[in-house]
Amino acid sequence: MRALTPAEVLFDGEVQPAVLPPCDHYAGSEKLMKKSLALQAQLGPVFDITLDCEDGAQIGREAAHAELVASFIGGEEDRFGRVGVRIHDFANPSWRDDVRIILRHARKAPAYITLPKIRSVFDAAEMVAFVEASRCEAGIQKPIPCHLLIETHGALAEVFELAALPGVEALSFGLMDFVSAHNGAIPDTAMRSPGQFDHPLVRRAKLEIAAACHAHGKVPSHNVSTEVRDMSVVANDAARARNEFGYTRMWSIHPDQIVPIVAAFAPRADEIELAADILLAAQAAQWGPTRHGDTLHDRASYRYYWSVLRRAQAIGQTVPESARALFASDESPGGS
């Protein structure tokens, strides 16, 4: 009898939760786009690059900026296919043109399209549907995942419905706009650490977004750290986002932030080894209950340890050779 893999037995026929590289790095100008692509070529696909049409484009030059963004997607510098784009928001008349220009002029489809300042499920659904229709019109074979930015009161109020939308792969928290939307009721200290983790309204928003994502198998992406000199602050922000709030991904706005973010979200070597041992024993037992040391395990803990291996593989960490066959049927975004 063929040994069944985790993907085949642990999710009761449901699609596995999405796994993405743990860092989402934003670049808005041509210079920063080139620098980011060069760094990705050096470090490998351990982080995604989001080319920014929203904040990167000058007023009146939106179409030209979208063409610039398109020129980098699928080009020689895009070695790993992990380059996405953020378009303008629903209230801006340029968002549809952003989508059309990028899908028509890029050499291949972007890894994802980020939709900012979502205010309702209606807005998000219309934008996702337009991306899908434009994808079909452009003759692009595979659907393009959408990432939603949760930074308004309306989006937070409907965050579980937003996470449930087909075509949505990730939800990102837009801390700065969220705090500003409270018109001074939340102090500016909540825009940076440690205040961003302490203010009750901000904590609530972070937790609601993470919970909605995990309920629907989507990726929760934590907001940016505004610290660009002391990387220990960035590393601590990333660790708190992961360990206290359940995030599996985080923004970066400075190249120096990428490595500490990736390191904070990466499983430790001993975690990877433990996960491999437990899952291989489970596979040998046809996924029935097993014992590792003094601890009993069943399918609930197997799902946890499978997530450890999938996250490790997504950023190119070393997985024991004996455990590599476990990925035979894994077709997740960050999988094999």
Rank of each mutant, 00 (worst) to 15 (best):
A276D: 02
H216T: 12
V224W: 00
A275L: 06
K117T: 08
S134V: 11
R311L: 06
G139V: 15
G316C: 15
R229S: 12
R192K: 14
H182Y: 15
I102H: 02
Y247G: 05
L10P: 07
E331F: 15
A263I: 04
L274K: 10
E77Y: 03
N236R: 14
I140G: 03
A325C: 14
F245L: 14
G335N: 03
H65R: 03
A155E: 04
R240T: 14
N183Y: 08
F90H: 13
A66N: 08
R311S: 15
I49T: 14
P45W: 00
V308R: 05
I87F: 08
W287C: 10
E67D: 04
G74S: 08
P333V: 14
G246Q: 11
R203Q: 10
E137D: 14
P166L: 09
A185R: 15
M250D: 06
S172F: 04
A157H: 05
E30Y: 09
I140L: 12
L326T: 00
D78G: 01
R107E: 15
D55G: 07
I102A: 09
D198E: 15
R324K: 14
I209W: 00
E169K: 15
S172L: 07
G74N: 02
R204V: 03
Q40P: 13
A133Q: 14
L37Q: 02
P166Y: 07
G334P: 00
E76Q: 14
G13L: 09
V179D: 03
R303M: 08
R100E: 02
L10V: 12
S332M: 11
I101F: 10
M33Q: 12
S172N: 13
G246C: 04
